[in-house]
């Protein structure tokens, strides 16, 4: 079943055309990884798919429904699309536990007791339960990011979008976050991930999508994309990313 899709997506900021017509779809249970040079429009694409920004042109479909065309309630759909930011963007005045609880209480209207239970379970999944009462400022970048993942995951979303979740972390912190994400992928969580962690893509992705200059250049299963990409642009970019050739 198709969870999230788009057709003919364009985004223009002033004179700058960031997305130049993108068709894309992801099914339930799939993990897709988006790679591409900086400025290729990956983050903009992800924010539009997360309904955090409207497209200039084109359609976004959530579970088959035309989100902007049918005038659906954006807040209700956003609640079903998890989003993990590059800068974890935890709510700074709340503890790790309160960060995870807030959406459960305010959006899903859970009781405090239910929300605490659910939040603690989710923090355990990302191995942050022991840090539940710490404020973001007291946590490392990797720990913050795992709480960010828990915050999105606790809402039981139909898909989670990750916008370069490890880009601002050093190598060991990257591993702890990537481990958690692999875990989620294996649990069958639908994930759309912008990342350059090619090991992650190799292990758990169903498809790698290469974006460049606002377009999808090529996409395919990891083995094919990494070993024998069809386009010259994909060969060049992947060659550099894999550190050889």
């Amino acid at each position: 079943m198709e969870v999230l899709a788009c057709k003919g997506l364009r985004k223009v900021y002033g004179d700058l055309e960031v997305l130049k017509g993108i068709d894309f779809s992801i099914n339930k249970g799939e993990t897709k990884v988006i790679i591409g040079p900086s400025g290729s429009g990956k983050s903009t694409f992800l924010r539009i798919m997360g309904l955090l920004e409207p497209p200039t042109e084109g359609k976004v479909f959530f579970e088959g429904k035309d989100v902007y065309g049918e005038n659906l309630n954006l807040n209700m759909i956003r609640a079903k699309i998890g989003f993990v930011f590059q800068d974890p963007s935890l709510f700074r005045h709340l503890t790790a536990l309160e960060n995870v609880k807030l959406g459960l209480k305010v959006v899903l209207k859970m009781s405090d007791e239910e929300a605490t239970k659910k939040a603690m379970e989710t923090l355990k999944l990302v191995r942050m339960d022991e840090w539940a009462d710490y404020y973001p400022a007291q946590l490392s970048g990797g720990q913050q990011q795992r709480v960010g993942i828990a915050r999105a995951l606790a809402m039981d979303p139909d898909i989670i979008l990750f916008d370069e979740p490890t880009a601002s972390l050093d190598i060991e912190l990257t591993w702890e976050v990537i481990d958690v994400m692999k875990d989620l992928a294996r649990r069958g969580i639908t994930m759309l991930v912008v990342t350059h962690e090619i090991g992650f893509a190799k292990e758990v992705a169903d498809e790698i999508v290469l974006m460049d200059s606002g377009r999808i250049v090529e996409s395919g299963p990891p083995e094919q994309m990494l070993k024998s990409p069809k386009t010259e642009r994909a060969r060049e970019f992947l060659g550099r990313l894999l550190g050889g050739v």
Binding site: N75, G82, F85, G103
Partner: peptide, 15 residues
Amino acid sequence: VDKQQMMAALSLGMT
């Protein structure tokens, strides 16, 4: 207040 805080809140489905 960091603009991303609003984004993060909206992403959870808050109005």
